[in-house]
Structure formats: C-alpha cells, structure tokens
Amino acid sequence: MKKVCVVISILAVMLVSGLSGSAWAEILPGEMGISVMGGGYGFDDENDLLDLGKTFTLGLGYNFTRNIGTELLFSYVHSDADVCCSDDDVYMYQGQLDLLYHFMPEGSFVPYLVAGVGGMMYDDDNIEPNEIDDTFQVNGGLGVKYFITPNFALRFDGRYYHGFEDSSNEYALRAGLEFQLGSTPEKREAEPCTDADNDGVCDDVDKCPDTVANVRVDSEGCQIKSEPYAVMEKSGETAQPVAVSDVPPPPPAPEMMEVVIYFDFDHTQVKSLFHKQLEKLADHMKAHPELNAAIEGHTDSLGAADYNMELSRKRAESVKQFMVENYGIEASRFEARPMGETQPAEPNNTAEGRRLNRRAITITIME
C-alpha cells in the first residue's frame, strides 16, 4: 500500500506542475505512437521472495479519437530472488493491452487514465516450482504526456497490477519518450467541410448561412456587427438586396475586400477550405490593379511571444506566396504584417477561442 501512495504522489506532483506549461502539440485521431520507457517495478509487501526490480517497456499506441486511444505494451522486468543465502536473478516478461483516456488533448500537457489486461511470465531456474506462477493480470493507473514538439513527448506513467493466479499486487513507475508517427501538416489539416456561403465557417456550425460575400464574420458565421451590415434575402439562386427601414445605409467607402483564413496549431499551410476566398481576392485585385493588399498574420497565446511573432510572419508570408504562385499576383502588391499574439479576435482561455486566433487577414487597400 505504501508503494501505491508513492506512485500516486509523484504523478500528482507532475500533473500540478504541468498545468502551467505552454502548448506545442495535440492528440489527433488516426495517429500512431511508439513509446520507450524504463523505471521500477515493485512487488506485493507480502511477497518477501522478490526485491524491487527494474523494468524496460516498449509500447505501440493508436488514437481512435482525440480522447480515446489504445496501446500494446511489452515489458522486461529484472529482479533478485532471495533464495537461501544468496540473491539470484529473476527475469520476467509482461504483455498488456490497454485503453487510454486523454484529458486536454489539444495542448502539450496531456494527462491520461489507463486500464487494461495482460499477463506476467517468469523465467528462472533458481525458483522452486509453485513459489511463483505465471499469472493473468488486470491493471489501472494514470500518467502524463508532455509534448516538446508535435511529434515528440516526455511520458510518465504509474500502474497498479493485480495477478489472479496468486492474488498478487504489484506496482510500476515508468518514465520515457513517445514518438508520434505520421504527424504531418497535411494530416493535421482539418477535413474539408461544406461552406455554402464561402465565409470560412462550416455549415454545421454556421448560424448565418446566407452571409453576403466579402464581409468579415464571427465564429458563428454572422457578419461582425461593428461593420456596416449588408442586408440581403434569397431570391431563387441569387441573393437580392432588400430595404430594411431600421438598418441605416452603409456609408460610402473605398473599394476594398477582406478575407479571413484560419490555420491549424503551429502550422502555416493554407488549407484548401479557404482557396475559394483567396481566388475571389485574386480576381478582385486583377480587376483593380490600383489596389494593393496587407496580410496580417496572427497566433493564439500558447508558446513564447517571440516564437509566436515569427510564426505569424510565416503565416502572412505563406498567404502571400500562395497568391503569387497560384494566381500570378505580383509580390510587390502585398505587405506581410506579423502581429503575433498581440491582437486576439477571441479570448485565449478556450480551445475554440485559440482556434479563431490562429488566422491571417488579407485587406485590399487603395494606393
């Protein structure tokens, strides 16, 4: 029982200390991971035959969803057996299939709960028959993964094992590394969704599905109220303007256009979801060669401020390069403006707010 308390105490300290960490990665469905860990393996207090052992573990995991994953672990355990007047080496082999539940999967610090089934096999000629038997085991525990990069994490794991053959109670505390396989920008890019009004908000969450083209919208797909409203109604296939007495006419404004696109965490790739909007911007600039465009790059607040400023510059440059290479707009007509995390569109204290802050804004301006 003392060993259980030690394991829980150490993991609790790691959980608390990691809550202040800044995020670099996230758990994503469909990704596989390889874990390499080492640590200590303790035996039942009533088992005076085996001493505290050393364990080496190799794991192969798969994420079904952001929260739920599975893992196959193989462990080698070495201990000493107190036989007669000397200590003899005892070698054990452990296999288990576990189910993991990840908390806060969108960040770098990912606590998890785990439970599974498996077994332990003993391999030693120095132990008398029936002193220690191979056994079927169930296990449970908790741990944390701390991502240093999107593909690489530190890992800490504590387990309790119950053996049915001899009603044994055993414990393991491990630390090691985890490598995420296939974590590329292309794979992390969100699957394309239906966006009928091309405002950058998917139809399944768009509360204003008939937004007029070329206006800035909020996270629910509705035109931002601080801007002059374009009031439209549907007539067949074409949106037609209607007169609304309580809506003032928009003031005269120079010919301009604004496009907002969003990025995956720690990435700069322009997603296919926003290609249509950028194509409209290109057509607009080709039709009005007197117009130039400013491209603002933004980030959420996770990570160091200097890193986020450089990331926002790369996002703005990525949009500029996309416009030049795909639509032939002269590079001299664009100005990249890195903003870092200094101008959030939404509060950064939620995952949704951080998603909306990972953006680039292109604005055409008169010159």
Rank of each mutant, 00 (worst) to 15 (best):
T135Y: 13
F164N: 06
V4P: 00
S318K: 02
L302Q: 15
L11D: 01
Y101E: 01
P29K: 02
V319M: 06
Q240P: 00
M366C: 00
K234S: 06
G297L: 09
I365W: 10
A294G: 10
Q137W: 01
S20W: 04
M257Y: 01
L177M: 10
V4M: 13
M256N: 03
P347K: 13
D124T: 15
D123C: 07
S75R: 02
T238S: 11
A282P: 08
A230I: 13
E128I: 07
I34S: 05
K286D: 07
L50A: 00
D203L: 10
H284V: 04
F156R: 05
I361D: 01
V13A: 13
I8C: 09
A243H: 11
F179C: 05
D246F: 12
R358S: 15
V319W: 00
Q343Y: 09
L154D: 11
V212W: 05
Y146V: 14
N151F: 05
F263W: 01
G221P: 08
L28N: 07
A175L: 10
T57K: 05
L302S: 13
S35L: 04
Q94W: 04
R359Q: 13
A331I: 10
R216N: 04
D264S: 14
R188L: 15
P249A: 10
R174S: 12
Y146G: 13
A331G: 12
E31T: 06
F322R: 03
E220C: 04
L154W: 15
S226D: 09
A153L: 13
L113A: 14
G340Q: 06
V324H: 12
S235V: 08
T362A: 15
G59R: 00
H298T: 12
C5Y: 13
L278R: 06
D166T: 14
L154H: 11
D306I: 08
Y76Q: 07
K207Y: 06
G297C: 12
S219I: 03
D199E: 08
G40Q: 02
D51I: 00
L278E: 05
G143E: 07
V90S: 01
H275R: 09
M1E: 03
Y160M: 03
A294T: 09
P111Q: 03
S17G: 11
Y171K: 03
V144H: 09
D210N: 13
G158V: 04
E46T: 04
S22Q: 11
L173Q: 02
L302E: 14
L49T: 13
L97K: 07
R333L: 11
S9M: 05
G53K: 02
Q269W: 02
A25L: 14
P111F: 01
E191T: 11
N47I: 00
V247C: 07
L72H: 01
E106S: 10
T238M: 04
D134C: 02
E290A: 12
E178W: 01
K187R: 11
L97Y: 11
Y146T: 12
K314C: 04
G176D: 05
S20E: 02
V138L: 11
S318N: 03
R333G: 01
P129W: 03
E26T: 06
G53N: 03
V144L: 12
L97G: 14
I361N: 05
K234C: 04
S86G: 02
V260I: 14
D157I: 05
A345Y: 12
V244K: 15
L177T: 12
S79C: 03
A196G: 01
